[in-house]
Design a protein around this nucleic acid. Structure first.
Length: 716
DNA sequence: GAGCACTGC
């Protein structure tokens, strides 16, 4: 019952946590921060970095974990006078939590409140003011900002952090910023020649006449005729791609501050990862010194089965060795259960954390000394031909393996056990395929069109998306009425759709709903469909959670079921609010969620989205009316908007999707799983063990040709 | 009979 490992040649060194959570006096804290700032690797190269930024309009910075680039560079630039002309320093992050925590940390280092000199902006939360000079934000939010201000004229410097993660937002931003930078430096060069500049603006204004942001051009002219400084920060060792994309931009390396992590590989290939992980957990527990274990697994199911197996095996251990406890963490786990992984283990106990790749970047768990990495990950990929989103288990990339092992060395030297052979590691791809290559691009293209970029194929992507995927997305947008015959953004439908922070079909449904007199219902449905997993079924309470779900379920389908959940929750909240403070009412709502097996984090998210979209549609001047009990209207509206996602039951009970001919089953989580109506519309088509349609509602097939003649009229 | 991870003026 033991696995043999040999120590790999690679020794990784990782970041030291400098600031512990201990409460300290303010003055003492200050000194400590100053000391830390000086001790960060990046501090020694401050002068050189500033010089490089002055000399180069675009700079690539490669910095490993712990280099301090994210927190320090913006401060260097601020102190170096890069905001002097009133411009902002913007730093994008792929994740909300990162934007918030880093901004708070930097504000503290600057000795000010967050929202003053240093602020952050994420969806639903803008903690900036007119004093703000350093602004942390999500990459998606900066992209949204570009819709209002196409030249991003408020920014003197834009830093794209974690660019190696290659989120779809980062990739679009890279192309966009390259363009913006060129345009802005043209203005800057011609600034001496006022006439030329005026002429230039006139043509530009003409070109953008129908697009957004006309008013901002004057702003750009007034304040920001100086060029845009662009800094791309990446943790991957390969800066070449970024450098080449930005016309051979200069790249500089900044060292990280790190603890060594020894890497071990197996001698034999492992066929059963769960089993190998299990053996390794106990091998570490029985033979290695103290320290918690982090195991990377592919999904909830695997986590729950490993958890069960570990618990069974603990009982077989001699009494003195049973001091091992397991903690699962994955994104759909309710927050209160997620939080448990952060609590220290009971005295004398060793924690085993069973995690998905949520623990790779999103969540940092203290106390980890051992990492077990089976080398597998579930990834989403989209087939433009079938319109299927599949979730498949694949081998990790080298950089992902690197990232995982790094989790063992944050507080001291650690060990990482890779459950595969070293020869296999060498064969892994260097990095993960960028999202832009494996997602449905309809939304991205809608955004680009709204930015006035009509030639999608000519757009300068760092990595070109698949041509077929672009064509299919253009077709989708056209059929939804967002694009004209010339593939230009239509007015008002396309313009309004682009303004909504939703999937194009959801946006279409919102716009149509005001005509079907069911906007109130559609706002709720779309908000609920925008969040993951409203229902939560703990493995030990499956029956109770099913019974709870039945209380809300509607025979018409999941959309109405979700509306029932939202309205019941909202009613409960309003009642509770009548006799309680807001905090107390929110707490009561969380308890209500728990009793009803609803994920309160997801519901909160849906409520936030609901109020944001409500705000949006109100400003667009749409009338928010309700269809009352006449849910027929609502379902007709769904048919009119989701007609591209309509499917018809075949004699064998399997559904055939009209658009692609793809066959699929109703997902077992749907309330229509058993009843199987003749004709349905669905929110998404996913391939896991089988092809499934998720979030399904029953419609009348005759509605399709009536309500979507542009698509069904010709075919039928 | 089943749900990697993020994100959105």
């Amino acid at each position: 019952m033991s696995l043999d490992y040999h120590c790999g040649i690679a020794t990784l060194i990782f970041m030291k946590y400098l600031l512990s959570g201990i409460q300290l006096g303010k003055i003492f804290l200050w000194q400590k921060i100053l000391q830390q700032r000086k001790s960060l690797p990046i501090a020694t190269v401050e002068k050189r970095l500033l010089e490089e930024v002055r000399k180069n309009d675009t700079l690539i910075i490669v910095g490993e974990t712990g280099s301090g680039k994210t927190t320090q560079l913006p401060q260097f630039l601020y102190n170096g006078g890069f905001c002097r002309d009133g411009g902002l320093i913007g730093i994008t992050q792929p994740r909300r939590v990162a934007a918030v925590t880093v901004a708070k940390r930097v504000a503290e280092e600057c000795g000010s409140q967050v929202g003053q000199r240093v602020g952050y902006a994420i969806r639903f939360e803008d903690v900036t003011s007119n004093m703000t000079k350093i602004k942390y934000m999500t990459d998606g939010l900066l992209l949204r900002e570009a819709l209002l201000d196409p030249y991003l004229s408020r920014y003197a410097v834009i830093i794209i952090d974690e660019a190696h993660e290659r989120t779809v937002h980062t990739d679009v931003l890279l192309g966009l910023l390259k363009r913006v930078q060129k345009t802005r430096s043209q203005y800057a060069n011609k600034q001496s020649n006022v006439d030329l500049m005026k002429a230039n603006f006139n043509t530009l204004i003409k070109r953008e006449e129908n697009g957004p942001g006309v008013g901002n051009l004057q702003q750009c002219q007034r304040r920001n005729s100086n060029p845009l400084k662009l800094i791309i920060m990446s943790a991957s060792l390969d800066a070449r791609g970024f450098s080449e994309f930005f016309d051979n931009a200069k790249a500089v390396h900044v060292q990280g501050r790190q603890f060594p992590v020894d890497i071990y590989y197996t001698f034999q290939p492992q066929t059963d990862c769960v089993d190998a992980a299990l053996l390794t957990i106990f091998q570490i527990h029985l033979e290695e010194g103290p320290g918690d274990i982090l195991v990377f697994l592919t999904g909830q199911e695997e986590i729950e089965s490993v958890e069960r197996l570990v618990r069974n095996r603990i009982r077989q251990l001699p009494e003195g060795s049973q001091n091992l406890s397991t903690f699962p963490i994955f994104s759909s786990l309710p927050s209160e259960k997620q939080l448990k992984v952060f609590a220290p283990a009971p005295p004398g106990f060793r924690k085993v954390i069973l995690a998905t790749n949520i623990a790779e970047t999103s969540v940092t768990i203290p106390g980890i000394k051992y990492v077990i990495d089976p080398g597998l990950v579930k990834v989403r990929s989209y087939s433009s031909e079938s319109g299927i989103d599949s979730l498949i288990t694949v081998e990790t990339s080298k950089s992902q393996a690197h990232q995982r092992s790094g989790r063992a060395g944050r507080e001291g030297p650690g060990k990482c056990f890779r459950l595969y052979q070293e020869s296999l590691f060498d064969k892994l791809p260097d990095s993960t395929v960028p999202e832009i290559k494996r997602l449905d691009l309809s939304n991205v293209i809608l955004q680009l069109k709204a930015l006035g970029i009509d030639d999608i194929f000519g757009f300068d992507f760092m990595e070109k998306p698949d041509e077929k995927a672009v064509i299919r997305s253009l077709e989708t947008l056209f059929l939804l009425g967002a694009l004209t015959d010339e593939a230009k953004l239509s007015n008002p439908v396309g313009q309004q759709m682009a303004r909504l922070p939703l999937d194009p079909m959801d946006s279409r449904a919102i716009l149509l709903a005001s005509q079907f007199n069911c906007l109130k219902e559609m706002l709720i449905a779309v908000a609920m469909l925008s969040v993951e997993s409203i229902f939560y079924a703990p493995p030990d309470k499956l029956e109770q959670s099913r019974a709870a779900m039945r209380c809300f379920s509607s025979p018409e389908g999941d959309h109405l079921t979700l509306i029932n959940v939202y309205c019941t929750a909202d009613e409960f909240f309003e009642k509770s609010l009548a006799s309680n403070s807001k905090e107390k009412a929110e707490k009561n709502l969380r308890n209500w969620c728990k009793e009803n097996f609803i994920n309160s984090r997801s519901l909160k998210h849906a409520r936030d989205i609901h109020s944001q979209i409500l705000d949006n549609v109100t400003r667009m001047g749409l009338r928010v009316t309700s269809c009352g009990d006449d849910m027929l209207q609502f379902r007709r509206c769904l048919a009119a908007s989701f007609f591209l996602n309509a499917a018809l039951k075949q004699p064998d009970g399997i559904y055939r999707v009209y658009r692609s001919g793809q066959m699929a089953q109703i997902h077992p989580s749907s309330v229509l799983f058993r009843s199987k109506p003749e004709c349905i519309i669905f929110k998404e088509l996913v391939q896991t063990t089988q092809s499934y349609v998720r979030n399904v509602t029953r419609i009348d097939p005759l509605w399709l040709s009536e309500l979507a003649p542009q698509y069904f009229g010709v075919q039928e």
